[in-house]
Design a protein around this nucleic acid. Structure first.
Lengths: 334, 334
DNA sequence: ACTTGGCACTCACGAGGAAGGAGTGCCAGT
DNA sequence: ACTGGCACTCCTTCCTCGTGAGTGCCAAGT
């Protein structure tokens, strides 16, 4: 059905359209790309491609533009992830190496990605659930008030304030500290419930009420529904491609304000080691049906970029992959 | 020069224009607002107002619209901060009371403000410099690596990782901990340099090298250039008023991505107890010359909203003031 | 001295129409 | 299976013209 030349025509259409943002006609296409056939032949191929749903045209006498299905085929079979230039690699490296803490790494990654791709960039903080506990600090804020500060191996710091039903002494707090410290140090957060399950019985009776409160906070807010954080940047780039958005930017901007949506974007990844692309209607999020998302995991979290379906997939996939790898290495090494 | 009726005409123009987003003409104005004079009279007043620079028109046969100067006069002399309805007050209260930690307070405030005003909301995290130290924790991550976790009275938590030139023992770390703890507890961060100035001499010689490193990080990164954080939300609201932006949203979105710019917006406040308005050209930030900003301090930080100059100043000022007060109370009480 | 009705003038805006042109689909020829 | 030719579609651009909202100014009224 789709012989090699038809695929070549599709590739040419996608590349031309991405480049010029104008529906591409048979004549210009046959000229510009060295297909070695006449416009008429290209027209026939185009008609076939249109029958299969890979391209459309807005009205009878307009050029063709790729459909979501067309982009999909292009990404899957016709394009390759484009490696970055060595200059770009160096830029990434030096830019990310300057980061002083996790917040900084994430912030810089967002900037970097949005500047490299000229799209909206999204970076998830390392997920808590898969993280290892490096330190759990219990701070005695007030007689009946504690603050838990959890530090993970990826450098993330989470805190929770906790009101106790009864007053506790400094001494009891340091007992708590050592008990939790011993049990949790080096444990992964998902394993915490198991590691802590027999705590109440094992502890001295006097400590139990406090211990149970603290335990429930640790398990409840840190393990069961760990707070996922996400950084976003480069929203201004949306206006750069404003022409590509059929209606307005409104729904897109609205969707991008929802943490849940962003997590969904980044989280829906099957294979954690490759770049992943969602195109237009493939997005489960209403309001992002006219956008494409390129994502990848860097290990304990994900990152990616979002832009119009008419984007340079090869390059963007390259950038996302490169940044994901650098960030992954950076976090693993620290 | 500007008698009462002229001022009344200006108010009517501003209110009408904010309401309808259409240049307002003498006839409709004389009808809709009970001015008790004929259109011709209104026209004369308009001509006077235009001579003074309070209003303009885009072309000869179009209605009048307020200039920045006109809005300024309106805000200063013709409008009052509009108190919120009791329903709104209750909504704010219940919405903010649900917050569990500082991050949550800030995030919720941003949402709240952007929803109340239908504009872009900006909330600064409580500034570190004015904050009191509640706790400084020193965590021994690795033999030659420490993490400092600073907790302030406003609930803010800052961390810094610190590489030491030499290996330190757990014992030394706990000494450090107690030394810093004693000196800093309850001190304001701006007073830290004084409180810590004689530390190296007072400490046991063996501890000095480490102590100096830690000291320099505390002073350098936490005191001298404390990291200001800012949360922003409701960007999608910009598209709601897209018609009001002469060019595109681009420069506005770009400006909003700069932390520095946001800080400038919120920071340039003289009187910390009242609502503050910057209108159009009054904004020192290029790119925000077509926007107005309504801000107020809530105590250790500031917050505000940003929108087109054509905004409902009375209501927005009311919302900003109300939220600032609630947030201020909330943080002071915790 | 201020206010008012009248009146000519300006100018954005939308409708209607024609010319231009890019691009298609189809067919017959090689 | 490819190609050139050709009629057709229909978007785009440009023009014109009528309409109406709104103004500025003047002379008359209070």
């Amino acid at each position: 059905m789709l012989d090699d030349r038809k695929l070549e025509v599709l590739r040419a259409i996608v590349e031309d359209f991405v480049d010029t943002n104008e529906p591409v006609g048979s004549k210009t296409l046959a000229e510009r790309h060295g297909l070695g056939v006449s416009p008429a032949t290209v027209r026939n191929d185009m008609a076939a491609l249109e029958d299969e749903g890979y391209i459309t045209h807005l009205h009878t006498s307009a050029g063709r533009i790729p459909t979501d299905k067309g982009y999909r085929l292009f990404v899957d079979r016709l394009s390759q992830v484009k490696p970055l230039s060595s200059a770009e690699r160096r830029a990434i490296q030096s830019f990310l190496e300057g980061a002083v803490d996790l917040d900084d790494v994430v912030t810089r990654s967002v900037r970097l990605l949005s500047q490299l791709t000229q799209q909206v960039a999204v970076v998830q903080y390392p997920s808590l659930s898969r993280a290892e506990v490096r330190h759990l600090e219990i701070v005695h804020l007030a007689p009946n008030r504690l603050m838990l500060v959890l530090i993970t191996d990826s450098g993330r710091v989470e805190q929770r304030v906790l009101e106790l039903p009864a007053v506790v002494s400094d001494d009891e707090v340091s007992q708590l500290r050592s008990v939790f410290g011993q049990r949790l140090h080096g444990a992964r957060l998902v394993d915490a419930p198991r590691a802590l399950s027999d705590l109440p019985e094992a502890a001295p009776p006097a400590l139990r009420p406090v211990l149970t409160s603290v335990l429930s906070v640790v398990l409840g807010t840190l393990v069961e529904r760990p707070e996922e954080r996400i950084a976003i940047g480069g929203t201004a780039n949306l206006t750069r491609h404003a022409l590509d958005f059929p209606m307005t930017l409104r729904p897109v901007l609205e969707a991008l304000e929802e943490q849940v949506v962003l997590l969904k974007l980044i989280g829906e990844v099957n294979d954690p080691t490759t770049v992943h692309v969602k195109i237009g209607e493939e997005n489960s999020v209403e309001g992002l049906r006219s956008t494409s998302v390129v994502t990848m995991n860097y290990g304990p979290g994900g990152l990616g970029v979002l832009g119009p379906t008419r984007m340079d997939y090869s390059t963007n996939m390259g950038s996302v992959r490169a940044v994901a790898r650098y960030v992954g290495d950076l976090l693993a090494g620290s």
